[in-house]
Design a protein around this nucleic acid. Structure first.
Lengths: 122, 122
DNA sequence: TCCTCATTTCAATGATTATTGAATTGTAGG
DNA sequence: CCTACAATTCAATAATCATTGAAATGAGGA
């Protein structure tokens, strides 16, 4: 991943509506959601959700597919992984054992509450 | 982590100079770097780097400590982990086995080249 | 204590970015 | 074919953010 694309992705995630959309779609999984349903869920106008969906797609955070009259959007898990990898690349100058314990908890796993700090378990 | 704080963090990472600073400090590890050294490395004015360092500190992405006359900044690995965890929380509605394979490669480990796509190896 | 150096603060300017509602595209069902 | 519906595009407005240089702060060494 290039720096330019990473910045575009982070900028996309820095906006309230867009961050909600991405998290909604991350939780929805590969099945995804229609643009209209997303608009209802995050409570914005169709025109506005379209604007943000385009931005997220351009940022490589979500991916669209047509299904009947609707357009279904789902999280781009590859794009998300690449973004995180870019941010953490060469962490601790090639000695990941230093910071890895602080990062493993960040992995994708079910959790109803993230406010309690989790211990790393390699 | 709260949504508001996550947005602040993503906004911080969406700016060219700030993203370079964070990646520089991620690679530098816990040892960190002085503000002046960072300014030289990313080639911006002291005033400008100070502005961005404050923003990154406020976003919970870096942490400062005084050492003699200098102020040493290092990456806040806990903050970074929390941010990623927030983004990926409850992924795939509690069935992480669906998206986890796409995310494990994002972990902190040494790599000289990230342009070649890495296979997930659980 | 005085002087020096590293960093921060400040005010002003220029440049992106989100939002809104109306109009448009394009897909399918009757 | 034509109507209805889902989604997007467009232009205008309002708000937020990065950059610059000069001035100020604050900690240490002599």
């Amino acid at each position: 991943m290039e720096e330019r694309q990473a910045r575009t992705a982070f900028a996309a995630l820095s906006q309230e509506t867009r961050l909600r959309i991405v998290r909604l779609l991350v939780q929805a999984g590969p099945e995804g959601m229609a643009a209209g349903a997303i608009a209802q869920a995050v409570e914005v106008s169709p025109s506005n959700v379209s604007f943000h969906l385009k931005d997220l797609e351009h940022a490589g955070m979500i991916v669209p597919r047509r299904e009947a009259r609707s357009i279904i959007y789902s999280a781009d898990f590859t794009g998300l992984r690449d973004l995180i990898a870019f941010l953490m690349k060469d962490c601790c100058a090639g000695h990941p054992e230093i910071c890895a314990p602080a990062l493993v908890a960040a992995q994708c796993r079910p959790s109803t509450n993230n406010t309690t700090r989790k211990k790393a378990h390699a």
